[in-house]
Structures are given as C-alpha cells and as structure tokens.
C-alpha cells in the first residue's frame, strides 16, 4: 500500500501533531521507507494463527473494591501547566 500526502495529513491530525507543508514530504518519504520494511511480513501465511497480544498466556488479576488513594491534587497540580481553583485549564472546549 503506497502512502500518500493525504494519509500523512490524516494521521498527523488523528495523532494531533502539526506537520508543516515541507515536513509532509519528508515524513512521507521516511514512512514509505519504513513501510517498505514492514511489508515484508505481509507475505507470511498466518491463516489459522491466533493473534498474540501478550507475552505470557495468563489471565487478568482483579483487585478488591477498596479506596486506597488519598487526595494528592495539590502535589499533582504543582506540575500542571495551568490550573485554577483545583481545575486544569484548557482552551475553551466547544460542544
């Protein structure tokens, strides 16, 4: 599958990363090279093979329903870019 400039613009938007006009061509070239490498696995016959998501074949552990966390918002917000009255501030969210 050949990547296009449109693909780069689409995924850059999905990933919320600005790629400037000049950058698009550079990224397209790099990704095309990398996908050239990736395409090598397409030839493999994987019919009937179960996809492998985890290194170990184990099942999920669950925790008890207990409140173990205390309020640390002052500490956590000491490293926040912008806060006011305990809230994280962002440019207006339009709905």
């Amino acid at each position: 599958m050949a990547l296009s400039r449109d693909d780069v613009e689409r995924i850059a938007h999905l990933a919320r990363i600005t790629v400037d006009e000049a950058g698009i061509d550079r990224v397209l070239e790099e990704l095309t090279g990398i996908f050239g490498l990736i395409e090598r696995m397409q030839a493999v016959d994987t019919a009937g093979i179960e996809p492998m998501s985890h290194a170990q074949d184990v099942v999920l552990r669950v925790r008890e329903d207990r409140v173990t966390e205390t309020d640390q918002h002052a500490l956590f917000q000491s490293i926040a870019p912008r806060v006011d009255a305990g809230l994280y501030l962002v440019p207006k969210v339009i709905e």
Binding site: M41, Q42, V44, T46, I49, E50, P51, M52, S53, A55
Partner: peptide, 11 residues
Amino acid sequence: IQAQKVRRLIA
C-alpha cells in the same frame, strides 16, 4: 493483526 499473528509464529 497480521503483526500479532507473526509475533506468535516467532514465539
């Protein structure tokens, strides 16, 4: 999905 399948073959 293809990569996850080949991952299993490698394992």
